[in-house]
Design a protein around this nucleic acid. Structure first.
Length: 410
DNA sequence: TCTGGGGTCCTAGGACCC
DNA sequence: TCTGGGGTCCTAGGACCC
């Protein structure tokens, strides 16, 4: 067995860097990517110029502005990031036979056994960074080592615009001085429990009695400890089909207005339906999410449908039905969301197949093959969006409010 | 000045079937 | 009249990731 060589490539301040790329006047300036609403929301991404003032991801926007009053706030544009992601993925794919994306801005690359072809790992790291910069004008950092954990921690340690290769055999020593909070898989909850046990560094975790970790944290604890010792055997696996597609929206102000909430749910459902059809997927399970203004309480209710769907109205009906079952109308609603899961390929030949027409909803199977419904409203909307973008057209029922944030590429 | 949006994985109980 | 054990699916919630 050859010694594993795994790289972790991580785009630097991805959303903020894309904003600076698309709007050259923002280059070199503190940029905060958040929502339209400066009242509610957190920082999704901050440029390094903004980070110099103490701004970081997940910080409330208002707090970020207080730290960096001259920062420029731009809205999140998921569609645009997905577009750039597709471009960057093509570069990643050239450098490794197996690539596992982890979100839009990072990926693991298994380059084991490619040394004869691509050169030593350190050179691959530099070449990959250079290729991304040359072809996209975006900066990335690349870390590497014998496992996913070491690769990821290395890319984090060399940010921004760095490369770092941890030599095989030195990983345990390199890891041990780091704080446990820096270890992927240890969030706020686990961190607090570990500190209460006197575990503060990765070295502490590596040396802690395994049986105690097992009794308190179960399998997860044992795996974390193995990783802390440099024993992380998780394989780099290529992305399969998506497991879920979701959309959610936090309102500028909490609302108990049933008509308003229903219209928002329809808009969210349309977005999820559109993305299902784009991906050629149907969903059997629909989950509605309701967050109350009171106490930030979050409720989820799901239903598995008799037939999988990619139809906007079917998704909306299922989701709204679940909202009604969970929502006490005396509570003002802060957020609504809808998620499609239990996904499978829709088996349609093409979105615009003139013969069968695209599938709206799986209906009764004929000879075991789901039959497509004839083209309807969804397909008319999709066809317009295909040419002019998602924002180009919307339902009359949704015209009462301004459109929510863009999912399109512009 | 409270707390976005889009994901994955895990646990645990109950239904249901064999 | 009392009550097995395994497997799978569904639902709700939680931790964690970027």
């Amino acid at each position: 067995m050859p010694t594993p060589a795994i790289l972790h490539v991580d785009m630097d301040a991805f959303f903020a860097s894309v904003a600076q790329l698309d709007h050259p006047e923002l280059a070199g300036k503190p940029v905060i990517v958040g929502g339209h609403s400066t009242q509610r929301g957190v920082v999704a991404s901050a440029s390094y110029e903004a980070r110099a003032h103490g701004v970081h991801s997940a910080m409330p926007i208002a707090q970020a502005i207080a730290l960096c009053p001259h920062a420029i706030c731009v809205p999140v544009a998921m569609g645009r990031y997905r577009q750039v992601n597709r471009q960057v993925r093509q570069i990643w794919d050239r450098f490794a036979p197996v690539v596992e994306p982890a979100g839009l801005d990072e990926a693991y690359l298994d380059i084991t056994g490619t040394e004869a072809l691509l050169g030593p790992p350190k050179k691959v790291e530099s070449d990959l960074r250079a290729a991304i910069l040359a072809e996209t004008n975006l900066s990335a950092s690349v870390g590497g080592g014998t496992s996913k954990l070491v690769a990821k921690m290395a890319s984090r340690a060399c940010k921004p615009a760095g490369v770092l290769w941890i030599e095989p055999g030195t990983e345990r020593q390199w890891l041990q001085g780091h704080d446990v909070a820096l270890m992927p898989g240890i969030g706020p909850v686990t961190q607090k429990r570990l500190r209460a046990m006197g575990v503060n560094t990765i070295g502490d975790l590596a040396g802690f009695p395994t049986d105690i970790l097992a009794s308190r944290f179960g399998v997860h604890g044992v795996e974390l400890q193995a990783a802390a010792c440099g024993r992380d055997t998780r394989a780099v696996t290529p992305a399969g089909l998506a497991k879920s597609i979701s959309a959610e929206e936090t309102f500028d102000a909490d609302s108990s207005d049933r008509d308003f909430l229903h219209r928002r749910m329809l808009d969210l459902s349309c977005e999820v339906g559109y993305r299902l059809r784009q991906a050629g997927l149907v969903a059997a399970t629909i989950t509605a999410k309701v967050r109350l203004g009171r106490g930030f309480e979050t409720i989820e209710r799901s239903v598995t449908l008799p037939a999988a769907t990619q139809d906007d109205d079917t998704i909306c009906r299922a989701a709204w039905d679940r909202v009604i079952s969970a929502w006490d109308r005396s509570d003002a609603v802060r957020l609504l969301g809808v998620r499609a899961s239990n996904l499978r390929p829709s088996l349609q030949l093409s979105l615009f197949d003139p013969a069968g027409g695209p599938a709206g909803q799986e209906s009764r199977p004929v000879d075991g093959i789901p039959r497509s419904l004839p083209a309807g409203l969804n397909e008319v909307l999709d066809a317009v969006r295909e040419r002019f973008g998602y924002e180009a057209i919307t339902r009359g029922a949704l015209l009462k409010e301004p459109r929510r944030q863009s999912i399109s590429g512009d």
